[in-house]
């Protein structure tokens, strides 16, 4: 077995053990050996589940297309290494790794969401009045939820809603693209 193909058996073994679909396994095996091996090392270190592996393969592929880099170089980045080698349980690190990978794949979405979340937090809304951003900022629909257990609580929440009307309206405009991303 040549050095270049040394990883093949290990990748196949991981894929078989985790019932990885054949198409995904083939895509993994089609990568350059260093890239395939880097993915295997992450999978082993974080004990990734099958769904996480599928997600990781797709995200790494798309980041690679966007940025012209192979998987080995991407997972070697400091921000990802920190999640792989950081403190915490393996599931927590795996989750943090996937989250960071998604941020790299969707950098402007991640920034926009962080910006909106900080605007929501700055309103300091009372318990029972919640502003829910759309999943993945995929629409300009902002959900405002009131949860009251008494008439007086309802009055208090409605007043808070009125008091924050302008900020909430500004959030809707931001969702629609009023701000620089």
């Amino acid at each position: 077995m040549s050095d270049d193909s040394a990883h093949i058996g290990a990748v196949k073994a991981w894929a078989a053990e985790h019932h990885l679909p054949a198409a995904a396994t083939d895509r993994w095996l089609a990568l350059k050996p260093a890239d395939a091996l880097a993915i295997l090392e992450v999978a082993r270190e974080l004990r990734l589940r099958t769904a996480q592996m599928l997600n990781m393969l797709e995200l790494l592929d798309e980041i690679g297309v966007r940025e012209g880099q192979g998987a080995a170089k991407i997972v070697a980045r400091d921000e990802l290494r920190r999640t792989i080698c950081g403190a915490g349980s393996r599931p927590a690190r795996a989750s943090a790794f996937m989250e960071k990978l998604r941020e790299l794949r969707y950098p402007r979405l991640a920034r926009a969401r962080a910006n909106l979340e900080s605007a929501v937090a700055a309103m300091r809304l009372p318990r029972g009045l919640t502003v829910v951003l759309p999943k993945d900022l995929s629409s300009d629909e902002l959900m405002v939820r009131l949860t009251a257990h008494s008439a007086s609580e309802l009055d208090k929440l409605l007043q808070a809603l009125v008091d924050n009307r302008q900020q909430i309206a500004a959030l809707i405009e931001k969702l629609g693209g009023s701000d620089e991303i």
Partner: peptide
């Protein structure tokens, strides 16, 4: 491989804020 996300109409679209910004 842009920043398209699954939208309420079932299509992948650039997330709304970025799309709106570009339209504007």
């Amino acid at each position: 491989t842009g920043e398209e996300v699954l939208s309420p109409d079932g299509r992948y679209r650039t997330f709304t804020a970025l799309r709106g910004r570009l339209f504007d």
